[in-house]
Amino acid sequence: MAKRIDARNLNIYYGKFLAVADVDFTIAPRSVTAFIGPSGCGKSTVLRTINRMHEVIAGATVQGELLLDGEDIYGADVDPVNVRRTIGMVFQRPNPFPTMSIYDNVAAGLKLQSSRMKRSDLDVVVEKSLRAANLWDEVKDRLAKPGAGLSGGQQQRLCIARAIAVEPQVLLMDEPCSALDPISTLAIEDLIQSLKQKYTIVIVTHNMQQAARVSERTAFFNLAGVGKPGQLVEIDETQKIFSNPTEKATEDYISGRFG
């Protein structure tokens, strides 16, 4: 069920401002790809174009092609709502719905997308998603409690459970651990390893060790210069990026000789 993602000549704009220029990459199904790079280089922006979350900001537009198993997600007849059902997302800060219980948070996608679903079916999905997010054992006795009452790490795993409950093909993670403590971060990283059996995962991270730990491939983004748009410098096997990158800029960044 995981799908391949191809980006061809992506140019991403905020209004007239070109934020990211000329991005090409291919992401294989059932793999973990890390986006790294300095702040402001556009890696989160690229991530958000993959599920068309970019365009919820007024004036934001995209040129070029983004293909999901060959199908252009920016095609004229494509509903962005459907794109987002297919490509799930986990955000930087855990954001469970504050009015909902743990159970309802996980079920939210299903309940809000399509109206009717049997309670027993929903129970199955909720348990499966929470198990997949390594959260079931911690919350199974308090599913009716508010999701906002969990710890930060638990909330983030709840958000992951919420995202995978709708059975996406791809899971995008925008610095999912940056607001978490080391132990919670470890839990999320373990979770990513198990999730890649089923999903294509793209993760934006500031933490290079994390990129090295969890990903098979790494993409390095950088600004072309002051006031210039961000660009994809190179994308390759993680091992190669961290040991023997092709580009000098990558090596400088990896080795800390940057900026």
Binding site: M1, G70, E71, G75, D77, D79, N82, V83, L110, E167
Partner: peptide
Amino acid sequence: HAPVIGSSQPAAIPSDDEPVFGAGTLGGRV
């Protein structure tokens, strides 16, 4: 392309996991 994708995709719908949303073609039920 579009119709080809549309018709070639159903095979990609996973059978083990029910229910499925948004699988297959991205267009459709607008």
